[in-house]
Computed example of a mutant assay.
Amino acid sequence: MRSLIWVLFAAVLSGCASNVVTDYNDSVVFGNYASWAFAPNAGESSFVSLDGNRVRQAVDRELARKAMRQVPEAEADLLVNWQIVEEERLDQSGVGLGFGFGTGHFGWALAAPPPVRQVSEGKLVIELVDTKTDQVVWRAASRRYLRESQSPETRSKLIDEVVSEMFSKYPPGIE
């Protein structure tokens, strides 16, 4: 019974861990912002990819929930800039192989580590830029990654969840 309590406690603590990291300019009055537009270079590409459409739809939905209206770029208080930052990491998956023998207090063993491969992942970063000062006033970065191996449904769900969690921390101080 005691171990079940510890398992539940660990599950609750891991559920509290945030999947996004935010930063903001603490001298800005976020209540002054009422309108927004996508920055002309949002997504850093000459075309909008499938994930780009998913990000745009999620941002549009979340800012509408904040009662902010989307307007043409020239009339916006904030510009929304986003990008999917590609990161490389080494993935050690599988199990190693090994064998050994011995008797008493003495033995020999030989083992091979699990295979390692390089994996490319995409981390979503969203920035809000004040149009009057051209300064970033709020930034959110995901701790969850998009992978090429994910299905379109999984990618769409992940983007929706991450963008929703990002904007749950906007405006800052209201959590």
Rank of each mutant, 00 (worst) to 15 (best):
A76T: 05
A76F: 12
A76W: 04
A76S: 12
A76I: 08
D77I: 00
D77M: 04
D77Y: 15
D77A: 04
L78T: 00
L79V: 00
L79G: 06
V80F: 02
V80Q: 05
N81I: 08
N81L: 05
W82I: 04
W82D: 02
Q83T: 04
Q83L: 12
I84Y: 09
I84T: 02
V85I: 09
E86I: 05
E86K: 09
E86Y: 06
E86R: 12
E86V: 04
E87N: 11
E87L: 11
E87M: 09
E88F: 14
E88H: 05
E88P: 06
R89S: 13
R89Q: 12
R89L: 12
R89W: 06
L90T: 10
L90C: 04
L90P: 06
D91I: 14
D91A: 11
S93T: 11
S93A: 15
S93D: 13
G94F: 10
G94V: 01
G94R: 14
V95N: 10
G96K: 13
G96D: 07
L97G: 14
F99P: 09
F99A: 06
F99E: 02
G100R: 03
G100C: 03
G100H: 09
G100D: 04
G100I: 02
F101G: 08
F101N: 08
F101S: 10
G102I: 14
G102Q: 04
G102L: 03
T103W: 05
T103P: 02
G104A: 00
G104L: 02
H105L: 02
F106N: 01
F106T: 06
G107A: 05
W108D: 05
A109S: 14
A109N: 15
L110Q: 13
L110K: 04
L110D: 07
A111S: 12
A111E: 14
A112W: 15
A112S: 14
P113C: 06
P113D: 10
P114Q: 14
P114S: 14
